[in-house]
Design a protein around this nucleic acid. Structure first.
Lengths: 255, 255
DNA sequence: CACTTCAGTTTACGTCGTTAGCGTTGGGCG
DNA sequence: CGCCCAACGCTAACGACGTAAACTGAAGTG
């Protein structure tokens, strides 16, 4: 009767531990530049590949788990870097987070591709659910929300949105910490989607290398995209300050 | 002395033929939803896998060749669809081409990923060269050029560009039919890069499925990105007409 | 005709994901 | 306490993959 919740028997704890180790080892492998394989993960854990099937249904599932974990770890990095600015300065935090996001994508293109360019079939509801939990998505929506709370930039009313979009922002499937956003203010999520699309565009372009290397090195394309979004987020009168932060952060992340 | 150029011996013709067949068969395989493999391609050609090494140095090289070919074929599709509008109406053509590009990306996500999300390492100059020849890139820059010729939208002067970017637009590495653009007007390419980044962003987001499926189905996010770019391209006073074309084309491509 | 070039073969190696079946062991229950 | 079974990990094996090497035969060239 002591613990109705968390009926953690010893077995279950053990299981969860190796489960975590699998994902952790997989991430470590990727971080060393090796590529992900069941055999490699198992090998490093002192097991054989088929044993992993006690924990993971398929290679693809492992990939998804790892993607989720990488996303979480990466987000923690950006978040920490952004925390250099106080939480009542969400604009600065957003700028820093964007730069760190880009830097992460550029320095680990393989991992970036795994997390953000990993194709997700329409049907596959399992993977979709993981995507919905995406830590980075939550973090960015949160930042946007904080910016709005402070700067009250305009967003479309629900009535002005396409019916399908209205439905999508009222009942979000995409990663978005939206519970605390009043339904009448859900138009914010439309702004989020649009901004995310723009950010995702440059960063993916740069990370995959489908771009002039000099343009990537200069960071100008990315810079332009970020600056372009200041006005729509009600940050026009902070332009100078935020630009300085942006350039500073770009310089920091340029090794 | 008849043909100094094209010293096509019989051998060379034969060789080129099977070379083409390889790429063609590979594309066919992909079109049927199968995934690319040397063995599959060879098998369908009535050969064994190692034989392909007479024509292709590695699997990755085959992928690159196929990517180039797919890009060419896809571009031809968009181009044909866009040709519904006369060539003195490049704005309409661009709108149609963008919609068709998106539609292609959504209906063949696997191929799209191959062409546009296929990571290209910094060092790998071979692949970079192929990328530079990208047919779609040429087509879009050309369209943008035509629009500028007609509508004379503003673009940054060379002096206003970051030095690195200036160099990049004067001596482009990215796919861009830029020879006919006077150096002083190369600021146009900056507009091109920025627009491409935005288009690439939505389309990749949608094609990889990292997005609410309802948003994809509605096409609203894509629509918003295209409409947003009308003004910067000097097409503001054509907004109504182009919006109609955009929506019409979206309806057409919605199966 | 002899000689070379080269397209294609067979065989083989090492990798991968995945399946099937076999020991072993340790936790939960009678 | 002792039994049983479920969970775990193993080995062996299958079929795919990219790729390397050596060999065969035919086409092209002097």
């Amino acid at each position: 009767m002591a613990h109705l919740r968390a009926p953690v028997t010893r077995r279950e704890r053990q299981r969860e531990a190796t489960y975590d180790e699998i994902v952790q080892v997989a991430c470590a492998l990727l971080d060393e530049g090796a590529d992900l394989s069941l055999r490699a993960v198992a090998g490093r854990m002192g097991m054989t590949a088929p044993a992993l099937y006690r924990y993971v249904a398929s290679y693809q599932q492992l990939v998804d788990l790892v993607a989720f974990e990488l996303d979480k770890a990466a987000t923690a990095e950006w978040e920490q870097a952004a925390a250099r600015f106080p939480d009542d300065d969400p604009a600065a935090r957003l700028v820093v987070a964007c730069v760190r996001f880009r830097h992460w994508a550029l320095s680990r293109p393989h991992q970036f591709a795994l997390v953000f360019a990993n194709p997700i079939a329409e049907a596959d509801s399992e993977r979709r659910e993981l995507l919905t939990l995406s830590t980075s998505g939550h973090y960015f929506t949160d930042l946007l929300w904080n910016i709005w709370e402070k700067h009250r930039f305009p967003y479309p009313r629900l009535d002005d949105l396409d019916p399908v979009i209205r439905e999508a922002v009222l009942e979000p499937l995409i990663p978005a910490k939206a519970e605390h956003i009043a339904p009448s203010e859900r138009g914010l999520l439309w702004i989020y989607m649009r901004a995310w699309s723009a950010l995702y565009g440059v960063v993916t372009l740069e990370s995959t290398g489908h771009c002039d290397p000099r343009v990537i090195a200069s960071g100008q394309l990315f810079r332009a995209v970020v600056l372009e979004w200041l006005a729509p987020l009600g940050l026009e009168d902070e332009r100078a300050r935020l630009t300085a932060i942006l350039d500073d952060e770009l310089a920091r992340t340029r090794d």
